[in-house]
């Protein structure tokens, strides 16, 4: 399990754990970042910039500090768009 911050761009997986308090969890839930959801890392901005992920066809920008509290089990196959992963 790695945090969203440590995941590599284009890696996909399933969210297994959310850190932080109740308010943090409620906040990320609102954009469907929940335990059990498929997630793919789309981009990471340079210089401690935010992480962009894809959940359910939607792109979401998450600050790096928040991304550190989202833990993902990375899976090999990237199925979010039926595209094969670049290796």
């Amino acid at each position: 399990m790695v945090s969203l911050a440590d995941m590599k761009v284009n890696e996909a997986g399933i969210i297994r754990k959310l850190g932080g308090g109740e308010q943090f969890q409620a906040k990320v839930h609102s954009l469907n970042v929940r335990v059990g959801k498929k997630i793919k890392k789309i981009s990471k901005l340079i210089l401690k910039g935010p992480v962009v992920v894809e959940v359910d066809n939607t792109h979401v920008a998450i600050g790096l500090g928040m991304a550190r509290k989202v833990f993902v089990e990375v899976s090999d196959e990237d199925s979010s768009h039926g595209q094969s992963k670049r290796r």
């Binding site: 935010p50 962009v52 939607t58 792109h59 979401v60 920008a61 998450i62 600050g63 500090g65 928040m66």
Partner: peptide, 10 residues
């Protein structure tokens, strides 16, 4: 200040 957390619409 809180961090960014926003949807990026298509």
């Amino acid at each position: 200040s809180p961090e960014i957390f926003m949807e990026i619409p298509p």
